[in-house]
Design a protein around this nucleic acid. Structure first.
Lengths: 342, 342
DNA sequence: TCGATTGGAGAAACCGGTTTCTCTCGCGCA
DNA sequence: TGCGCGAGAGAAACCGGTTTCTCCAATCGA
């Protein structure tokens, strides 16, 4: 039924090895033979079986992208499409395909290894630092299997890409300072959380650079959601000496902050400024539009893809890591405070 | 280097066909032999090559999901992750994997067919009605290749899943009417656009059911974005006899509508109500929170997956289609108008 | 007691390609 | 004229499994 290399060989009256060489454009086949065989392929509408090719060539031409379905992270969700497209944009032209593999949280890492890696299903693996764990890292390393983490991974020598959370914190804070805000709070994130620590470090860094004191009570830890943003901001604004701006861990926190300020009738911008991490697609549409930190998610995926391809080409490559710079998108919520304005 | 079925056979002192039968739990092998061979597999940490298996079994155990990278649709983007996870949740347990395939918009459909379908890379295809075209449908049908469209596809006899846009229009409009709103506008969408036509039909339907006249000037067509939502709503509200509510084609339009009402100082709810299609993750956070139509994107993907698996099992299955019901999420933007309130 | 049946395992062919090795033929060169 | 050489193509082995066919011994029925 399906046309195989044998059928072509027979029709062209050559050996199937010859057909194979034509497929791979081997220099050992004469121009005339190539053309003749190719013409026959066309006529018979032949497409080589990629599975047979993969078996013979011992390469699956497949990249695995690990996701954790149960972890319906608000974090991954809105960015996932762009990350994936970024990966695909790099590996696609190299004729790799992207296979999505779901990881059950209670999957012993052995299963993942067997299902995907040892079975030869994929040539390389992209995952994130939430799914990755030391056991997986060790197994992969032992096998010499190429992989890349999206998100910094510290406990082992692992290649990763991440965006620069610390720089981001400094950018948001620095921007607020430059706009004339002088007393800036930081809301959201739980101490101990890596990503929070980094962001907060940037916030502190900006203060130091501006020779401003860092006051502990200006940082309000907690779950990074709207409710926390709302309550914390309310409290801050109602205190004796309210801050004049806030840096939020994410858009949800920022929503809460907006709500709190609005409820108290505090104009933004004017008497209060808000800047936030994670530029969600809707931050231009809040009232006022939010100044936020855009993460080049496409580029994040593309970089992970590039790093992985390099490691596939040369598995002995030493681990490297890369920090992408986020981009500050200035909108109205941090407009300059001017005397007499509003 | 890698352990193969041969190595196991040698170690167990059996034929490799025996090992294969053990792998497939064939009844023709005695319990004792099975246990002995399995023990050796364990000891040698053997994992069968999935590629060799696929070649021998003539099944790739792979489902293709077609995306159009260039089409950075606001539409697909926020929903993509959930759709994908929905698909995976159905096919994963059946040991299928999901391969993402990018379609260049200028790819002649021949290429897609060759690259993915004829090459045996995938056993079935899920795509959407934007990517799908008659040429592809014809090729796939001719090959008897199983596929499913996410989104209604009309010009051919194609299996598809979609959510019920018409019912959605009726739900939003009916809800507003039930809340006491009596003069409802419809903003966004370009005439000729299928999805718009359907949604508007539901809007009209609800009017008929309530024995209310449908007034042409209440429908404002245009690009479904914030700007259009803003301008149209402004115009409507400033007219001689403004409507008391609006149904928006999507969240962006709804943002515009909110902005317009706010600018004119018209309280929502109270003197104006807003209901919108497409519950984006941030519609709870607008001010007021938006009543909107939630689409079960996970279920959409899962259903597509289920339909596809059925068709893979029985390629002769007649085309069927399925409409999923959207869900109305009632929030404050459509709160009942009560006399003397506000 | 003997032929037929059956359970269990091995041998070999097969899936559809790739790769290595071999062979032939024509040409250049001594 | 004879030899070496390289280009071009074929034969066969291989990738790592599955499947079919065959074989043998033990069991069963008559």
């Amino acid at each position: 039924m399906k046309v195989t290399i044998q059928d072509i060989a027979k029709a062209a009256n050559v050996a199937k090895s010859t057909v194979s060489k034509v497929l791979n454009d081997s220099p050992k086949i004469s121009r005339e033979t190539k053309e003749r065989v190719r013409e026959i392929m066309r006529q018979m509408n032949y497409t080589p079986s990629s599975i047979a090719t993969r078996l013979a060539k011992r390469s699956s031409r497949n990249i695995g992208l690990l996701i954790d379905m149960t972890h319906e992270s608000e974090y991954m969700n809105p960015f996932f499409y762009n990350i994936m497209v970024g990966i695909e944009s790099v590996i696609g032209p190299q004729t790799y395909e992207l296979t999505i593999a779901n990881v059950q949280p209670n999957d012993p890492e052995r299963d993942i290894m067997n299902r995907l890696v040892r079975s030869g299903r994929i040539d390389g693996l992209i995952t994130n630092n939430v799914i990755l764990n030391d056991g997986m890292v060790d197994s992969l390393t032992e096998l010499g299997f190429p992989f890349v983490s999206m998100g910094e991974y510290e406990s082992r020598n692992v290649p990763w890409v991440d965006y620069d959370n610390e720089a981001g914190g400094a950018m948001l804070t620095g921007h607020l300072l430059a706009q004339g805000y002088a007393d800036i709070a930081f809301v959201g994130g739980e101490s101990g959380e890596k990503i929070y620590e980094k962001r907060h470090r940037g916030y502190a860094e900006a203060h130091r650079k501006a020779s401003l004191p860092l006051r502990g009570e200006r940082t309000v830890n907690g779950v990074a959601d709207e409710n926390h943003g709302y309550r914390s901001t309310l409290e801050l604004l109602q205190s004796d000496r309210p801050p004049d701006a806030v840096v939020c861990m994410n858009n949800y926190v920022a929503f809460g902050a907006l709500k709190a300020a609005e409820q108290l009738g505090i104009p933004i911008p004017g008497r209060f400024g808000i800047a936030t991490f994670d530029d969600f697609p809707f931050s231009p549409y809040t009232n006022p539009p939010l100044t936020s930190l855009f993460i080049h998610t496409f580029e994040l995926g593309a970089t992970a893809g590039r790093m992985l391809l390099e490691r596939i080409d040369d598995p002995a490559l030493p681990s490297s890591s890369l920090l992408l710079q986020p981009e500050l998108i200035v909108r109205r919520s941090t407009e300059r405070i001017e005397a007499g304005r509003e």
